[in-house]
Design a protein around this nucleic acid. Structure first.
Length: 492
RNA sequence: CGGGGCGUAGCGUAGCCCGGUUAUCGCGCCUGCUUUGGGAGCAGGAGGUCGCAAGUUCGAAUCUUGCCGCCCCGACCA
């Protein structure tokens, strides 16, 4: 049957695509490199978005919205940033179509409508936002400016992958302006903490917090902080970034403020973002060969109730009980679905919701009603147990918490098992090929060495972990002195 | 942009090498009955520009050429 999911071990890429398509999150679209996020996938994104948005607001940020188009002249103002994105920009050059005189029913670009200045479809919004901030900031009283936007961006990547790298994707980007360097750095770190907490607490996905090496830094940033997660095939995934931009953008867009002493200075900036890529991360972090595994805290459906009955008479009895149960769970704040669709049999539904990763399934039939119990199956362990109907909401809430914790613990122990120290080059190469995961090794701190390692092994420095232990040693490739280990991995 | 694979019904596919009536099978869909505690059974039915274009031929899903699109691997990539 076409509903079967390719095994993780057999073909990891196919497994990943199957999870997303057969789990009902998204589909390929008619547009090159783009995807359609289906209602189930979008509901997941909404849950993630709502939670993140709450956390942003708790840390003093407000939402706003800036234009999709960035005039080329603005885009090129911060040179490093512009250069970094130049190769992957979609560009609007015309604003009108007309009927093609040579081909009936066909349209063509009207050459008369050529724009005087090309518009870049934002790959990121620093340029348009900093151009706007220039008008908003005059005095220290206007600072800090703490703004986030939920938006779509376009990056014309050569090769795409569902959720992990699509030509258009949804994200949030925070852009803040501060009076001092210290404050901006603190903001950068604070938002990294917010991302880490979101990943670990809500996605149940352990992450490593760190700083990027110069090679991997965001174009235009002074420092790029990141959270890095490990996927089940041993490859690393950058799950979120928070950048300290220094005064680079303030200088490029001439954003100055008067301080209390009436001295003019450029403002200090940060930007930070996470995207629908997190959905890809979530999928790969927990799922198995049966399908998706959703963390209860974000699952669009936390509990599904499946009725089991013979004939109309039994259906009516089961319906009544199940609906009462649904109400009870709903009132306890659980996202619950009662699937009373009569077109599919229970076995089909079991498989379907497993594929969708619904954390808890409740089966209820005449037999259960007689005994005042239900059958409860959990997705993470596939365990089935009989629960008393009385006080069910409380026990389900406890079970959801347990599942959340269990999948986190499982992912974390996998991650811990896959951080390995390498002391020599041979060991490093062997670990990368055979064990995979993060390899902790000494590096001499130069971009050249990093490039060379990438060329030889395809591994990159994922990050220099925060609060990294200092130890004198030698670079695994060059033998030059090194004062700390960094984390290498092959990455998405 | 390089290497590999693919394009046949909503989905997954057989047929292609070696051209020949009406294009195969499964899922799904529709109708009916029986079913319903792990992807239901039987019976009947609907559904096709064989990716597009040109060529070869009496005849093309099948051979040739060109084009388009997709997937995987690489290059590329906060």
């Amino acid at each position: 049957m076409s509903k079967e999911i390719t095994s993780r071990k057999e073909d990891y890429s196919q497994w990943y695509n199957d999870l997303i398509i057969k789990g009902g999150l998204a589909d390929y679209s008619a547009v090159r490199g783009c995807m359609v996020i289906k209602p189930y996938g979008y509901a997941l994104w909404e849950n993630m978005r709502d939670q993140l948005d709450k956390m942003f607001k708790e840390t003093g940020h407000e939402n706003a919205y800036f234009p999709l188009f960035v005039p080329k002249s603005l885009f090129e103002k911060e040179e490093e940033n512009a250069e970094g994105f130049a190769k992957e920009c979609a560009v609007v050059t015309h604003y009108r179509l007309k009927l093609n005189p040579d081909k009936k029913g066909a349209l063509m670009v009207d050459p008369e409508s050529k724009l005087e200045e090309e518009l870049i479809i934002r790959p990121t919004s620093e340029a348009i936002i900093w151009n706007t901030y220039k008008g908003w900031i005059q005095s220290y009283r206007d600072l800090p400016l703490l703004i986030n936007q939920w938006a779509n961006v376009v990056r014309w990547e050569m090769r795409t992958r569902l959720f992990l790298r699509t030509a258009e994707f949804l994200w949030q980007e925070g852009h803040t302006a501060h009076a001092t360097q210290e404050e901006a750095v603190a903001e950068t770190k604070q938002m990294l903490e917010v991302y880490a907490e979101f990943a670990e607490t809500f996605m149940a996905m352990p992450v490593i917090k760190g700083v990027k090496s110069a090679n991997e830094r965001f174009a235009g940033a002074v420092d790029t902080y990141c959270i890095e997660a490990l996927m089940q095939d041993g490859k690393a995934l950058q799950a979120g970034t928070s950048h300290f931009l220094g005064q680079n953008f303030a200088k490029a867009f001439d954003v100055k403020f008067s301080d209390k002493q009436n001295k003019l200075d450029y403002v200090w900036a940060t930007s930070w973002g996470v995207s629908t890529r997190l959905i890809g991360a979530l999928v790969m972090a927990h799922s198995d060969d049966e399908g998706l595994v959703m963390p209860p805290k974000l699952a669009p459906i936390q509990v599904v109730i499946i009725p089991i009955y013979k004939g109309e008479e039994q259906k009516a009895i089961v319906d009544e009980k199940a609906n009462a149960l649904k109400q009870q769970l709903k009132q306890s704040g659980i996202r619950v679905k009662y699937d009373d669709n009569d077109n599919q049999r229970p076995g089909w539904k079991y498989a379907e919701y497993e594929m969708k990763g619904v954390p808890v399934r409740i089966g209820i039939g005449a037999r259960d009603i007689e005994n005042n119990v239900v059958e409860v199956a959990r997705r993470d362990t596939k365990e089935k147990k009989t629960y008393p109907m009385d006080g069910l909401a409380e026990s389900i809430i406890a079970l959801l918490d347990e599942i959340q914790l269990n999948i986190y613990t499982r992912a974390k122990s996998y991650r811990e098992d896959h951080i390995t120290k390498a002391e020599t080059w041979d060991e490093f190469v062997k670990l990368l090929d055979e064990k995979t995961g993060f390899i902790s090794a000494h590096w001499d701190g130069t971009g050249e060495t990093e490039d060379k390692i990438k060329e030889l092994t395809k591994a990159t420095i994922r990050c220099i972990p925060l609060n990294n232990e200092q130890e004198e040693s030698k670079c695994i490739l060059t033998g030059n002195p090194s004062k700390e280990r960094v984390l290498f991995a092959r990455a998405y």
